[in-house]
Each structure stands twice: as structure tokens, then as C-alpha cells.
Design a protein around this nucleic acid. Structure first.
Length: 626
DNA sequence: GGGAGCA
DNA sequence: TGCTCCCAACGCTGT
DNA sequence: ACAGCG
């Protein structure tokens, strides 16, 4: 066997999985989530960190955040260390976005790279350990290597399974004993697929091995053929959008040689037209095509022929069915009326599965704010366009038993602590999620939220002005504050506090002080006047809203308003005259997170406790003096 | 969205 | 079988 | 006590 030295000139070619349509199922195998990113080997010695791609390209300078993170780890006793894994842009526990990492890999401008590294860092997901302490482990069995990875992860406190909301940039893959559990997880979280690994297998350099088997999480669409490309053999695919034929992509792979020749003959013989490049054919031949996901509206990623649809008429291949086919959910998640329209934005419908997809996309950032809080949802059983809506707190009898509940004042509240529950709420058409400021069972708030709601959208600039004034005060007090849109017409300031320390009476002293400061500084802009008729067009500082029993819209909750607004965490730099609330919707927020990250990612990492205590004692003193 | 109560 | 109804409810403040 | 506000 050959030994590869760290820092040497040898290029380590990774062991590769073999593609199978189905995973082997036995106790000799373990199952891992397959992430869509760059396969890479991480080599760390006392002086250098190297990230090497599958084709031997050096990636560490393109992803400097990984090296920076590693340099802060205490690895001395493990060096030289070599890890096998995937460099990814993590969406959730079981999904990575290939386009984001690919785009990152193409950046060359240093300033842009470091900006991205800071706001939307990529992560290295470890699934194998090749060397530790300089000892070669590649001839050890997979199960032995796995044990050592787990051990290393525990010592270094690296997250497992991966979590995009965790600041650690090296994270560990989970290894499942149960195939169905792994598949269920991947389908639930819209992942790429799984890799099955034989427990006795060794790590074989540069080899495509049948000890590692990859299985993809395919989506499938029924469509018809419109053309054959003479040059490259690609077949154009389309569906009906009303009466119009709409292209959805093209496919070449997946056909046997026999099927391929049948298909090409069929198109040539029935062609309605022919030019230099294509044979064209009217809708008649229907096929099912598998793909991983759709990009740019009408291109399929990794399309594959899966079967002939001889019994299907082209009329049955519709755009609506195509949209639904993109989103698969495990059988354990029951979804009714998948195509029900919930919002209509400029003639474009957002249907129920697209809403569920939104929830799944933001879940890693949304769920932490719902965790262990008594939930009030607003349900729109006929979508946001209909007048009928109602609040719901109590767990209905038909809710799944798996949902955790908490009794408070005669109400059995539901807690939304996991993605399954979130999707259940989504299927129930809960479009808005509201929570109090304290965790279930606690009497003291863990945050202050200030609601800056202008009298109407025309006066939105007042909310901006108030937010920026409050930011100035917070900066001068050295208190860290966060800002988000309400999803409707205003802004909200969040101030995280340590849990269960300060009382509502104390936070009230602070909001009173802030309110009085603002109205005395800008009496024409802000008011604390309760009576509407006395407010004129001033912004009402409803700081009374901050008390026990009151609720506030949760970050990343959608709103049941016509433009599908989302309560969106913002960066302070974005708060200015150019801010447009209509830009923050269920259509835009998932991409926003990919481009800019979550603006609240430090929310539970800041400690406002000591400074808030100081400010309070100052306010208390002021009160006794006056 | 889904159950219950009712005709 | 189809219809209608239900699904929250608190606290603060000015008069 | 009650209306008005969120």
C-alpha cells in the first residue's frame, strides 16, 4: 500500500461511489446523506491547511473561511490530519446548494471572496477520516474510521448532523443504520440523495468502488417531446401551460441503446418540420423524466429518461403538474390540495406545495425562533385572498400526537420545534406564526421587540427614521439590536436578552425611556398617543405591546397579505430610504438567505445581559431621584 | 383544513 | 349527504 | 365600568 504524505506533491484522488438506482439494504451497510457540492480532501499539518478537489485543484484560497476556522481549532494532538468530505453551501441538515458553491468557486476578486466568506460561509462536511496523528487509516474498516470521526467531532465540539445555523464551518455527517430513516430524512429535507457504505470496506484511493453506492432523490415529471437535436442527441421536453406549449428542459441520458434508436426513429418519421439543427414533432410522445431539481424556470438538473408513458395523452402533461412534481415529500407528511393557490402576486400564483417548499427552505433559520415558544397561528383555510381566517392556539384533536404541547391558562398550546410540525402547520394553512417574548413556562422575556408601525405605507420613512434613531441609542449604550421587516408595512427592532433574567417590569422601564426620548426628540414624527384621532400622521410607538401575553410575528414567518410579505431579518446597512418592504416575500427570501446569509445569525450569540443591567440600574436611580 | 353537530 | 359553525381572548389606559 | 387600542 502507498502512503501519501501531507504537504507532499502527491495528489490524493478520492474514492468514488458507484451509482445505483436503489440502495442495498442489510446490516452490512450504513447510510449517509449525499450533499451536492465539491468533493474535497482536507489536509492539515502544523503549518498548512489544504483543500484539494477531485481533480487536484487547490481550493483553500477560494474558501479562506475554512482555513480560518481550522486555525482556531485546537488540533495539535491530531496532526497531521486528513479528512474526506464535501465542500458545500449548506441549506439545511440534509441539503446543500450546488450552484451557490460553484458560484463561490468562480470568484477571484479577493474583496468579494472575503465578503462572501464572512456573510455566507461555505462548510466542509466530513464523512471520512484518512489520517490522524500522521497514522494512515485508509486500510481500517469504514466502521472503525466512523467511530474515530465521531470521537474527534465530540472532542472538537463539531456539529452532527450538519446545521447551517451553527457557526462551525467543519461539521460531521450523520451515519444511519436504518436505510428508510436516511431516505425519509433526505426526502423530507429536499436533499440530493444518499450514499450507502459497506461497514467492512477500506478507503481505496482514486477508485470507483461498489463498497460505496450512491442513490439519488429523484423527482419525476410527465412531459412530451417537441424536438430532437441532430448534433448532440438531446430531446426537447415540454408541457402545456394552458393551450401553450412550454419548454421545461431536455434529456439525453437514461435510455438503453435500443430505446434510444426507437425514440430517434419515431421522431424522425413523425417529424412535422426539420431544419439544420432539429427535427420537430407535434405533441404525441409522452415520457417520464427524472431530475434532481429545476433551475432558471425551465432547465432540469441531471435529467434522465425513466419510462415511456404510452397510456398518457399530451394534454395530461400540464405546467401545474410539473410545478407539483418538483417537490416531493415523504409519505409520513400528509399534504392535501397540493395545487391550492394561497397567494396571487401580479397574476402569479403561489400554490400550497410552493409554500411548503418555502417553509422547508427557511426551516433551519425559522425553527430556532419558534422553539419552545407558545404558538399562535393565523390560518387562512382558503388562502390569503379569502376573507375567512382565524387564530389558533389549542391543539385540535386531529393534530398528530408527535407534536409537543404545553398547557398554559387552560390552553393546550402546540410547540413547533421540528420540520415535521412546521410542515403540518403549513398543510393546515397556518400562514402566520406569532409568539410571545418568553419561552413556554417562563415568566421573564428573552428579548425585547419594538414595533415600528407607520400609520400607512406612505409614512414608511418614519419607521426607517425611528429604527435608525433607536440604533443610535443602542450603539451609544453598547446594546446589540437587530432589525427586521414586519412583513406588512413596518419594521421591528429585536433586542436579545439572556433567558429568564429580566422581568417585564424592568424591560418596560427601558422601552418607556426609549419611547419618551424619541417623542421628545421628534414630536412631529413619533407619538405614544393611544387615541387614533390624536395621532395625526405620526408613527405610533406601541411599546406597550411589549408585555407578557402579547405576541409578535416570528422572524421568517410569512404574512397573509396580498404580496406574500415575510418578516425578514435585515442588516442595519440596508435600513435607509431605498428599503422597499415589497422586496421581502416568500418568493425572494430563500434566495436572499443564499446571497446574504441570515441577518439574525448572531441573535443567540450576543450577550446584552451586563450592559442591560447597567442601563437598568441607571434608569432605576433616575426614577428614585425624580 | 378538518371535525362536529345537525337536518 | 351536505350545510354551518368553530377554531383567541389580554392588558393597558384615558374617560 | 367601559371604550379604544393593538
Amino acid at each position: 500500500m502507498s502512503i501519501t504524505y501531507c504537504g507532499g506533491t502527491n495528489k490524493m484522488k478520492p474514492m468514488l461511489p458507484t451509482y445505483y438506482p436503489e440502495a442495498p439494504k442489510s446490516t452490512d451497510w450504513r447510510y449517509e446523506v449525499k450533499y451536492d457540492g465539491f468533493r474535497a480532501i482536507l489536509t492539515i499539518d502544523a503549518h498548512t491547511v489544504k483543500i484539494t478537489s477531485r481533480n487536484g485543484k487547490e481550493l483553500s484560497s477560494l474558501f479562506p473561511e475554512i482555513s480560518t476556522f481550522i486555525n482556531d481549532l485546537d488540533l495539535k494532538s491530531f496532526l497531521p490530519l486528513q479528512l474526506d468530505g464535501e465542500l458545500v453551501w449548506l441549506t439545511n441538515e440534509a441539503k446543500a446548494d450546488f450552484f451557490e458553491v460553484q458560484w463561490r468557486g468562480r470568484l477571484r476578486k479577493q474583496s468579494l471572496i472575503s465578503e462572501k466568506a464572512n456573510f455566507t460561509p461555505c462548510r466542509f462536511i466530513v464523512f471520512d477520516l484518512l489520517r490522524i496523528n500522521g497514522n494512515d487509516l485508509t486500510t481500517n474498516s469504514m466502521s472503525e474510521r466512523r467511530k474515530m470521526i465521531k470521537n474527534l467531532g465530540e472532542i472538537l465540539e463539531l456539529p452532527m448532523p450538519p446545521n447551517p445555523n451553527d457557526k462551525a464551518l467543519i461539521q460531521l455527517i450523520e451515519s444511519y443504520v436504518d436505510l428508510d430513516k436516511a431516505i425519509n430524512k433526505v426526502i423530507l429535507l429536499d436533499g440530493e440523495g444518499i450514499v450507502a457504505k459497506e461497514i467492512q470496506s477500506t478507503w481505496q484511493e482514486g477508485k470507483r468502488s461498489t463498497s460505496w453506492i450512491k442513490v439519488k432523490n429523484w423527482r419525476a415529471v410527465s412531459c412530451f417531446i417537441t424536438a430532437l437535436n441532430k448534433e448532440n442527441g438531446y430531446v426537447s421536453l415540454a408541457v402545456y401551460k394552458g393551450n401553450e406549449i412550454t419548454k421545461i428542459g431536455s434529456v439525453k441520458n437514461g435510455l438503453s441503446a435500443h430505446d434510444k434508436s426507437i425514440l430517434h426513429e419515431l421522431i424522425k418519421q413523425n417529424a412535422s418540420e426539420e431544419d439544420e439543427q432539429f427535427f420537430y414533432i407535434h405533441p404525441s410522445i409522452c415520457i417520464e423524466v427524472q431530475f434532481l431539481h429545476v433551475y432558471e424556470e425551465n432547465e432540469l438538473r441531471e435529467p434522465q429518461f425513466s419510462q415511456w408513458l404510452l397510456q398518457t395523452s399530451p394534454n395530461e402533461c400540464t405546467w401545474e403538474k410539473f410545478v407539483i412534481s418538483q417537490f416531493t415529500f415523504p409519505d409520513s407528511i400528509q399534504i392535501s390540495s397540493r395545487d391550492k393557490p394561497l397567494w396571487i402576486i401580479d397574476d402569479k400564483q403561489v400554490i400550497k406545495v410552493e409554500y411548503l417548499q418555502y417553509l422547508r427552505e427557511v426551516s433551519a433559520f425559522f425553527l430556532p425562533f419558534l422553539k419552545d415558544k407558545l404558538l399562535t397561528t393565523i390560518r387562512y383555510p382558503h388562502g390569503s385572498m379569502d376573507n375567512e381566517k382565524f387564530f389558533q392556539k389549542n391543539k385540535p384533536d386531529y393534530a398528530p400526537a408527535s407534536i409537543k404541547t404545553f398547557w398554559d391558562e387552560g390552553i393546550e398550546y402546540m410547540l413547533c420545534n421540528d420540520i415535521e410540525t412546521l410542515l403540518w402547520f403549513g398543510n393546515q394553512l397556518a400562514l402566520e406564526f406569532h409568539t410571545p417574548f418568553q419561552k413556554a413556562g417562563k415568566v421573564k422575556p428573552d428579548e425585547i421587540v419594538l414595533d415600528l408601525d407607520p400609520p400607512s405605507i406612505e409614512f414608511f420613512s418614519l419607521a426607517i427614521k425611528a429604527a435608525l434613531e433607536i440604533k443610535k441609542v443602542m450603539d451609544s449604550l453598547n446594546i446589540q439590536a437587530f432589525v427586521k421587516t414586519s412583513g406588512n408595512k413596518g419594521l421591528q427592532i429585536h433586542i436579545p436578552l439572556p433567558e429568564d433574567i429580566f422581568s417585564y417590569q424592568e424591560t418596560r422601564m427601558f422601552t418607556d425611556f426609549l419611547g419618551h426620548y424619541l417623542i421628545s426628540s421628534y414630536p412631529d414624527d413619533f407619538t405614544m398617543e393611544r387615541l387614533k384621532k390624536n395621532r395625526q400622521n405620526r408613527l405610533y410607538l406601541d411599546f406597550v405591546q411589549h408585555s407578557e401575553g402579547k405576541t409578535i410575528i416570528v422572524p421568517y414567518s410569512p404574512r397573509g397579505n396580498p404580496f406574500a410579505g415575510v418578516a425578514t431579518p435585515l442588516y442595519w446597512e440596508e435600513v435607509g430610504e431605498r428599503l422597499q418592504l415589497k422586496d421581502f416575500t416568500i418568493e425572494t427570501v430563500p434566495n436572499r438567505i443564499k446571497r446574504l446569509g441570515c441577518a439574525f445569525k448572531d441573535y443567540r450569540h450576543v450577550n446584552n445581559g451586563p450592559t442591560f443591567l447597567e442601563v437598568l440600574s441607571f434608569l432605576k436611580q433616575k426614577k428614585t431621584n425624580s
